[in-house]
Write a protein that binds this DNA or RNA. Structure first.
Ligand SMILES: [Mg+2]
Ligand SMILES: [Mg+2]
Length: 1197
DNA sequence: TTTTCGCTGCCCGCCT
RNA sequence: AGGCGGGCAG
């Protein structure tokens, strides 16, 4: 038996199953011998490394933490230049322009009358014949019918007040015409200085003097909530201290938790169906017992019974139904404050969604703001010499020439309103023929005119920039809007819009100049939000093979402050559950029973369309700001959307806040259109615990199933979720009236779990702060894409510093060119695909029983970028040819670059926040807020490097990434050499760390060595810092990136031992719980430091005991479950035969379940004595199948 | 009218 | 040696 094979047997029992050539009993006996030998020889002699290396023992391992922190001086953010560099004199010819403008206005109006914009009124100044807040009759009918239905169907407890609602609506129907008119009049005054037609007065006026970023902002400070607080408290002592995330693992507890039964196959929870969790109550039933016909629902019923549930209907007297009266929202000066949370782009206008305060009731309600006349901004780079007929001439170009050409282009495009003027800009990106600084001609024109071609060149200009900039980007850069914040809106028009949205208040402004972001100094807290957590249950319609909705549960939390840290079970909530029967009717007596038992609103429907309509009505009533779920993206939400579309449900656009009548054309595609789906919900934030953003907040998870999340993050109290196989449930225990009540209870419990998790991991506060740092949109941050956040923070930063910014890559023609593409990029991509990264030392494998220090650079890559001033603006990459990955020179004598300065600011702010957290008098709420802030700053700084090497980033700069990793390798090597020069043994190192054998026997000496080395290293660098990450009492180094160690943690002045494991098989989800359990037990013994002989005996006994249990089937089946992700669709696997996951997936697929790309498959390898010669793939089954007693399936050993 | 998703290093398995 | 899977590590 090979050395590696033996060691893996020792580490885990997986091979037992996988290699299953032998019967369990014979196997066990054999294996036990082998294991014993190994342990005896190496582990227990406590010999030193050399000795171990001679032996066959193959223990070694290591790893590091990637996360970091950095320290740097507090850097004030660079001011936005206040020099009025460009005179704003209009160059357009006035008479002609205004004539053109009138034509344009006409076509504009015509356009707006079509399509979606038929909800907009036609002209702002025409006095509105009717009062503002109006619902269409159709709307009233729609809602009225549905809500009436609610009233007849509600449970006894759910009190409702239809009459009051009616009065409010009536009241809203009679707005003050007078003031609406006076407001319009005021607007006219604004534009009276020019000769534009009154209807569009604002255009010219603002066009000329207006939204020009070269005019100093009235509010130059970005909205950065922490900054002020940081400055106030700047004196607080700064202590560099880091407790960065590492995954220390408490082996002793592994048995309890790791066993959580999870099944990720398919979109629906597909799980076993056992009574009490066998891991928590080992005495429970045999793993192979028959499928229960009933389920013990007490677990989840207990959970929900403890919640703070309020009546299903909120008090209606203070609630606003229908539209609100704008007069209740405006300030004394007539302006409106709105906190924006989301946006959508419609026909050349930007539409913001958000909340405003109703000053009368004190409530916050949804608001829709349409911003018109945001202007495109295009920069033209003049040529040196004029081109004629495609050939360069000797005639020099001056600005007037460029102006003429651009103006003629505008004329050709029939763009009446435009402004052209020269300006100066810097450039630091990848186009080589663009000067670092130069004169440009800047063109402004409206977004309702088409974009110029991205690669447009002319006789007088060689490049155009900014042709395809999105409206949103244009807006946030111009107005310096950094994520969700309060906006002050002046001269808002409350009469322009009429039911363009589903918001309570609708506002239009004629120009973005009327909008100003409020800063921290205005000390306005973000408004509280309305959250709705969703849990759906679906069934497969066999006929057309589509998932249809069976039940939707929603739990509503109102008035949730982002900084509130109250656990979810204490927050008042109410539920709405909508369900239809699986067949034609509910079980007998179910209707009465559910009314008696339910604490929330339960609506019983006959068919799916009814569910959909009722759900929309509830959405309209609740008007949630955020919808929270588990696997919404691509699963629940996608199904919901597709059902709404299939069923042609009226009022479907209430899923979001933008009113739509027609489905987008791009929705037709199969597989779901991610972008189109997203745009439909705009106005409400989609918060998915299981998308990339959600996963990144729950790093301890391996499968990210809802059950696993609850186990790992809601462990306190009675928060255990039970997995339920939906299909099995519907066929068995949920077919009775009591069973169906429990089924609903499970669904409602899930809505609690989902909301509780989102609150616990602070997903909303974190994503909001990340968005505030980056200046993108909250909804995009919630999708979890880092690249876009990084892109926006750089866009803002370079824009403020007057740089031309790289344009978004024009979409690449993909469909054609198969062969050519392959050849062209094949050679190219092969080389270019990857560049060199981190350095990993060959480990000195073995067991160490002297103290070992882990010395780790804090935020290595961000620190390198600062230390060496690595930036687009500083590193000369013109000389290096595009062939190889030649490492560029480190810049010398350059001013601090934009990127290093940005990182320094982030790191400095983080240090300030962390110092605030040391304040003993801080409340838990403050601490939570600061912790989120601190984390967001770290994440933002750390994501910079990755995006430099991201091919599709607008700021892709491979040489900068190459230089950064190069310096990293250089630093790590020289750090190792420094250690060795001091006679310290470096046993391992990975990217940013060295592991040093301190060769001492007590903590104090170990720290002494560590501190000395730390000082020696840090003396060599300006900013770069190494620190003691861990002190290991003992370590077993098995291989690169694999080790187990006893880590010493200081707790209340004393040192506590804690097992830390990296990379070993027990950290992988492809290993079953039993294997992990055994592994941790063995590692615990090996690293216990106890007498060798004793340990050997204990291990021996333990293994004997385990194998005995295995033989007698005393081990719960779940402990054999293995998890594997399907990286592609099951059918796309070329050699599916040999892959157990794929076999299992295909079998599930064949039986009508949904298995898609990226699902995590759970399976158990089974085998009796006879089939042992078949490949493991054939013998793999889902846990649910194995559980069925009559399957005769047993776990293979 | 779109086509997403930070980087590299290292090890396991299967198939050419 | 390459490709494809798998998913740890930083
Ligand atoms: Mg590290
Ligand atoms: Mg580090």
């Amino acid at each position: 038996m090979s050395k590696s094979a033996r060691s893996s047997k020792l580490a885990e029992l997986r091979a037992l199953r996988e290699s299953g050539k032998k019967r369990l009993d014979t196997y066990e006996v054999h294996q036990e011998e082998d294991l014993y030998e190994e342990v005896d020889e190496d582990g227990y002699k406590k010999v030193i490394r050399e000795r171990l290396n001679q032996d066959d023992f193959v223990i070694d391992d290591n790893g590091e933490g990637y996360a970091d922190d950095g320290r740097e001086d507090w850097d004030r953010r660079q001011g936005y230049d206040s020099e009025s560099e460009e005179d704003a004199r209009p160059k357009g010819k006035n008479g002609k322009a205004s004539k053109r403008k009138r034509e344009e206005d006409k076509t504009k109006r015509e356009n707006m009358d079509k399509g979606i914009n038929n909800y907009f009124t036609k002209g702002p100044v025409v006095a509105q014949p009717k009062a503002k807040p109006v619902q269409t009759q159709a709307d009233n009918d729609f809602m009225g019918d549905l809500l009436a239905e609610v009233d007849t169907n509600v449970l006894p407890r759910a009190s409702r007040h239809p009459p009051k609602q009616l009065t409010r609506r009536t009241r809203a129907l009679s707005p003050a015409i007078q003031s609406a008119e006076s407001l319009s009049a005021k607007r006219v005054k604004l534009g009276d200085a020019n000769d534009a037609p009154p209807a569009y007065d604002d255009d010219d006026g603002n066009f000329i003097g207006g939204m020009d970023d070269d005019v100093p902002m009235s509010d130059p400070a970005p909205s950065s909530p922490v900054q002020k607080a940081v400055e106030r408290k700047a004196q607080v002592a700064i202590k560099a201290e880091e407790e960065d995330d590492y995954d220390a693992m408490e082996v002793a507890q592994a048995d309890g938790i790791a066993a959580a039964s999870v099944n990720m196959s398919g979109s629906r929870p597909v799980l076993k169906l056992i009574k009490p969790d066998p891991y928590l109550t080992p005495a429970s039933s045999s793993p192979t017992r028959p499928l229960p016909e009933e389920v013990d629902a007490s677990a989840w019923n207990n959970v929900t019974s403890r919640l703070n549930v309020i009546s299903s209907s909120p008090p209606t007297d203070t609630r606003t139904y229908g539209k609100m009266d704008y007069k209740d929202a405006i300030e004394a000066d007539g302006s409106l404050n709105m906190f924006w949370t989301d946006y959508t782009e419609v026909h050349g206008s930007l539409c913001l969604f958000g909340k405003v305060k109703n000053k009368k009731t004190g409530e916050y309600v949804s608001c829709f703001l349409k911003v018109d006349n945001i202007l495109r901004k295009v920069f033209f780079l003049p040529r040196d010499n004029m081109y004629k007929h495609g050939r360069e001439t000797s005639e020099e170009v001056d600005m007037e020439d460029v102006y003429k050409e651009v103006d003629s282009i505008m004329t050709r495009m029939k763009v009446g309103m435009h402004k052209i003027k020269p300006c100066s800009r810097k450039y630091a990106f990848e186009l080589e023929d663009v000067p670092k600084e130069g004169e440009y001609l800047k063109l402004l024109y409206p977004y309702n005119k088409p974009a110029l071609p991205i690669d447009l060149t002319g006789d007088t200009f060689s490049h155009t920039f900014g042709t395809n900039t999105s409206i949103f980007e244009q807006f946030v850069l111009w107005k310096n809007v950094m994520g969700p914040c309060w906006l002050k809106i002046e001269d808002a028009d409350f009469t322009f819009l009429n039911n363009a949205s589903h918001c309570k208040l609708e506002v239009q402004v004629a120009t973005p100049n009327l909008i100003t972001p409020l800063t921290e100094s205005d000390s306005m807290e973000p408004p509280p939000l309305t959250l709705m957590s969703l849990a759906m249950r679906t069934t497969l319609n066999a006929k057309d093979n589509k998932q249809e909705i069976l039940a939707i549960s929603a739990r509503i939390y109102e008035n949730i402050s982002l900084s509130d840290t109250t656990p979810a079970e204490q927050i008042p909530s109410r539920t709405i559950t909508i369900i239809r029967p699986v067949g034609s009717s509910f079980p007998l007596g179910f209707e009465d029973l559910i009314k008696k038992k339910s604490r929330g609103l339960v609506k019983l429907c006959r068919q799916e369309p009814e569910i959909l309509s009722f759900f929309l009505a509830q959405l309209d009533r609740v008007d949630p700001d955020v919808i929270i779920g588990h696997q919404l993206e691509g699963v629940d939400y996608s199904i919901l959307i597709s059902r709404l579309q299939t069923r042609k449900t009226p009022g479907w656009s209430r899923i979001g806040r933008f009113r739509r009548s027609d489905w987008p054309g791009s929705m037709g595609k199969i597989g779901g259109n991610f972008f189109a789906e997203r745009s439909l919900i705009s106005g409400r934030l989609l918060c998915d615990l299981a998308n990339d953003a959600g996963k990144s907040t729950m790093t301890k998870c391996q499968s990210w199933s809802l059950t696993e999340m609850c186990n790992l993050y809601l462990s306190s109290g009675n928060n255990v979720r039970r997995d339920v196989d939906n299909e099995v449930a519907l066929k068995t225990w949920a077919t009775t009236k009591d069973g169906l009540v429990d089924y609903i209870g499970h669904c409602e419990a899930d809505t609690y779990f989902i909301a509780a998790l989102a609150l616990k991991v602070q997903m909303l506060p974190l994503t909001k702060v990340l968005t505030n740092l980056a200046g993108n949109s909250w909804a995009r941050t919630l999708t979890g894409t880092r690249a876009e956040r990084n892109e926006y923070i750089l866009l803002h930063e370079f824009h403020r510093n007057k740089y031309i910014v790289p344009d978004k890559a024009p979409f690449k023609g993909r469909p054609k060119m198969e062969q050519q593409d392959q050849e062209e990029e094949g050679g190219d991509a092969k080389k270019k695909d990857k560049y060199k990264g981190g350095l990993v030392f060959e480990p000195e494998k073995g067991l160490y029983d002297k103290f070992v220090l882990v010395m780790d650079f804090n935020s290595l890559y961000p620190s390198i970028i600062q230390e060496y001033n690595i930036c687009f603006t500083t590193v000369d990459r013109t000389t290096l040819s595009d062939d190889e990955d030649k490492v560029p020179e480190v810049p010398t004598d350059q001013d601090q670059g934009i990127l290093p300065k940005l990182i320094a600011t982030l790191v400095g702010r983080r240090r300030q926040v962390k110092s605030l957290m040391k304040d003993k008098s801080a409340t838990s709420e403050q601490l939570a807020t600061w912790d989120i802030k601190q984390l967001a700053l770290k994440l933002t700084a750390n994501s910079m490097y990755g995006c430099l090497g991201y091919t599709k980033s607008r700021f892709y700069a491979r040489p900068l990434a190459v230089l950064t990793t190069y310096k990293g390798r250089e630093i790590l090597r020289s750090t190792k050499e420094l250690a060795e020069s001091k006679s310290l043994q470096v046993i391992y190192g990975d990217t940013d760390s060295v592991m040093i054998n301190a060769n001492v026997d007590n903590v104090a000496d170990a720290f002494k060595v560590g501190h000395e080395f730390k000082r020696a290293v840090n003396d060599r660098y300006r900013l770069l810092e190494i620190d003691i990450d861990n002190v290991f009492r003992r370590i077993l180094l098995q291989a690169k990136k694999k080790y187990a160690a006893i880590n010493l943690l200081e707790v209340d002045g004393k040192f506590v031992e804690k097992m830390e494991v990296k990379g070993l098989d027990m950290k992988r989800r492809e290993y079953c719980a039993l294997s992990k359990e055994v592994s941790s037990k063995l590692l615990n013994e090996i690293l216990s430091g106890d007498e060798t002989e004793v340990v050997i005996t204990r291990i021996h006994d333990y293994l004997r005991e385990i194998s005995g249990k295995m033989r007698e089937d005393l081990i719960p089946m779940q402990k054999y479950t293995i998890y594997t992700k399907l990286g592609k669709n099951p059918k796309d696997y070329p050699n599916a035969d040999t892959m157990p996951q794929v076999q299992v997936a295909l079998r599930e697929l064949a039986r009508g379940k949904t298995v898609r790309k990226d699902d995590v498959i759970a399976y158990i390898v089974t085998g009796d004595g006879k089939s042992a010669n078949e490949p493991a793939a054939k013998r793999s089954h889902t846990p649910a199948d194995v559980m069925k007693a009559d399957s005769g399936l047993k776990a293979d050993a």
